[in-house]
């Protein structure tokens, strides 16, 4: 696509003419992508106008258009609420730590497995590490609860190391650790797929050339493997940062209890409670909108930084 566009710019044909030619040339590809575009319009763009209920006092009987405007009332209510500072910092912290600890692992896994020569060993490890990703969240959280109970696997291990029995899920201090550790367990294998794919496309000649230059295994990883997948890593990082505020409420709601609200209550669990449990649609939309604005700001800034520093960026 990019090459086509460049050539096209050189020839300085008008956009409409270009589109027409491109369409004729690739009509089946356009046809294939059509359902996706329709899906996006229906489920991502069309509902967007509903965001205005963040500025309205939404009542189902009046509908979105008919409800009364209230301006920034719900934003003010959210910023002024007793929980605002706590859930805001909890969200950032949970997400940030999660990024730091769980982001590098799939890269490391992929690079290490790439070095393994035995095909059977490789695919066994891959299957085992993908597996937790496909278990439903409810089951995963049930398992985590069991493991972290006093007489659970991890609970017993903890007692052995520290010498004291403790209900781990009841202590706010451990919530983030448990959350992130289970996140790593669940997602590392699956997230490494994209890096595997990137590593597969590295030209073998590069490794041969490095070997000729006398590079050992570690040096090959550092000077060939990692630089080759660096653009993929950066793009993934940008995407992750763009979702910094979007920590899913599902897992948090399944794992937290009032004793751990202190570290566990986050914006999305708050939206869930307010919007779906208290029927306050406008407030929860306002909070969601605020959340997404921060995400966009993060995404745009990290993209700009990356563009400057590494010349890799989303746009």
């Amino acid at each position: 696509m990019q090459k086509v566009r460049k050539r096209n710019e050189k020839n300085s044909i008008g956009v409409a003419a270009f589109l027409k030619r491109d369409f004729l040339r690739n009509k089946y590809k356009y046809l294939m992508v059509l359902p996706v575009i329709i899906w996006y319009i229906l489920f991502c763009y069309k509902p967007m106008y509903g965001v205005i209920i963040a500025f309205k006092d939404f009542s189902p009987s009046k509908g979105i258009m008919g409800s009364d405007w209230v301006g920034f009332k719900y934003f003010a209510e959210f910023f002024g609420s007793v929980n605002f500072v706590r859930i805001f910092t909890n969200t950032i912290k949970l997400s940030f730590y999660n990024l730091i600890f769980s982001f590098p692992l799939p890269v490391i896994l992929a690079v290490l497995l790439n070095e393994v020569k035995s095909k059977i060993f490789k695919s066994t490890i891959q299957t085992i590490s993908y597996f937790p990703h496909f278990i439903s969240m409810v089951v995963i959280c049930g398992m985590v609860t069991q493991f972290c109970a006093m007489d659970g696997m991890i609970g017993k291990l903890f007692a052995l190391i520290t010498g004291q029995k403790e209900a781990l899920l009841q202590n706010a201090k451990y919530f983030r650790t448990i959350y992130i550790a289970s996140e790593i367990w669940q997602q590392t294998g699956f997230n490494s797929i994209i890096y595997f794919a990137a590593l597969c496309s590295v030209n073998d000649e590069l490794y041969e050339a490095a070997a000729l230059d006398g590079a050992g295994r570690i040096q090959k990883i550092i000077h060939v493997s990692i630089p080759s997948i660096a653009p993929t890593i950066i793009i993934m990082l940008i995407l992750k940062v763009g979702q910094i505020m979007n920590v899913g409420s599902e897992k948090v709601i399944l794992l937290y209890n009032p004793l751990t609200y202190e570290t566990a209550d986050i914006i999305s669990s708050y939206i869930y409670r307010v919007g779906l449990q208290e029927f306050n649609w406008s407030l929860s939309t306002a909070v969601g909108l605020f959340n997404n604005i921060i995400n966009i700001v993060c995404l745009v800034s990290i993209n700009a930084i990356s563009k400057k520093v590494s010349e890799t960026s989303l746009w």
Partner: peptide, 13 residues
């Protein structure tokens, strides 16, 4: 990971 929020919002909206 952020699916829930998206779902909630998309759903409501």
């Amino acid at each position: 990971m952020k699916k829930r929020l998206a779902l909630v919002l998309a759903g409501v909206l």
